[in-house]
Write a protein that binds this DNA or RNA. Structure first.
Lengths: 212, 212
DNA sequence: CTCGGTTGTTCAATGGTGCTGCACATTTCC
DNA sequence: GGAAATGTGCAGCACCATTGAACAACCGAG
């Protein structure tokens, strides 16, 4: 019987925690454990119990499986950070030429863009020459698509499907609560804003394309 | 902080172990632990460490996630069946005028289209007048995007993000294995085909748009 | 029926380690 | 300068995962 090496669960946790823009202590408090434990787990010095492991995954809004998947650690560029609020995904990623090799993008290879209002965009794919962006969007608890509180308007059309958490969409004069599995699509010229009032991250697959 | 109840992992283990026709001691020997430990884990009297949990799942040949998932089994909606292979989402839904009311689509309101090769398309949204389709796609075990086995070609661009399960994409002469969180995008003129060789359904959010 | 072979369960005992609390070296911000 | 963040290292304790043996129940063979 081979020793059977357990995948580097810690590294994955750290990776997604950083993607969420969470501090080590913030996660610890959310999970209900000490900060040092999280550190030791992430650095591989300690292996969490099943209950804390489960607590961590739910706090991060990810599946347990994603930690064990053969995602191949991969060299995630230490986060392509870009400070300040950004208005549009296209403008945000414009400076960063698509450096994808194949058509497949794994979680480890994603270009990550963190906004200052508790929102993280991870680029799932982009076809050069098109005005289309394919994103995984994460709204931290309290996060909103515009920190100022105002509504957004831009050209094009927007499609989104929530995979976990809960998200509130203000669209024109109406307000909708999105739950996992719910989807929206609308013309982006309608004033809109997303906001996460829950206490777990809201994650979804988004699709923004601007028909210039 | 709520106690956060961990799913009944033990019961699941026992369930699948019995399905494999394995004795308790046989599994214990395979995993490399004592028989009593397996018993205590299955009866919920003890919680395994992450390493033993991982060893158990690999010994049983199942994913870690399957232990934590809510039963979930089928629960697939009775299905608005439409026999016959369909070539394109747009063509498929063409006969069915968008009868959406608001911009939000919940899982219960989705238009469902079942193909005969173990593939289900659920429309997440559609903006009238556009050649864009926003779908949740489910490949049942053994399902493939074309029952005949041939590759598909059509105009436009295709974006997809897998949320659960495992899916194999044949794109041109290459083959890619998609795991949860992985995403692809490519010009649909490239011959392609999806196939689910796993034993759990593969579910993803897909985006097909044809630039006429 | 009695034996040897299963099956899964339970018990006390122990060794390991998950976890905490604090101190430490950092960096950032006022 | 201090104050408040950040992540890390260490010591120590208590808990619990793990073990091995003894347990009751079942089955087929002799």
């Amino acid at each position: 019987m081979s020793p059977l090496t357990v995948p580097p669960v810690g590294a994955r946790i750290r990776q997604t925690r950083l993607a969420r823009g969470m501090s080590l202590r913030a996660l610890a408090r959310e999970v209900g454990v000490s900060a040092s434990l999280i550190s030791q787990i992430e650095t591989g010095k300690s292996q969490p119990s099943v209950s804390t492991l489960y607590a961590i995954t739910t706090a991060l809004g990810i599946s347990v499986e994603s930690l064990f998947d053969a995602g191949e650690a991969a060299a995630l560029p230490p986060v392509t950070a870009a400070p300040g609020t950004v208005l549009h995904a296209l403008a945000a990623f414009a400076a960063d030429p698509g450096r994808r090799i194949g058509p497949l993008v794994t979680p480890g290879e994603r270009e990550v863009l963190e906004l200052d209002s508790g929102v993280v965009w991870e680029r799932l794919g982009h076809v050069p020459g098109t005005d289309v962006d394919f994103l995984q969007v994460t709204y931290r608890p309290g996060g909103a698509s515009s920190s100022s509180g105002g509504l957004m308007r831009h050209t094009g059309t927007e499609y989104g499907c929530l995979t976990s958490g809960e998200l509130i969409l203000t669209l024109g004069f109406d307000e909708y609560t999105m739950r996992p599995g719910d989807a929206v699509c609308f013309e982006s010229t309608t004033p809109h804003r997303y906001r996460n009032d829950g206490d777990v991250p809201a994650v979804g697959v988004w699709f923004v394309f601007s028909d210039t």
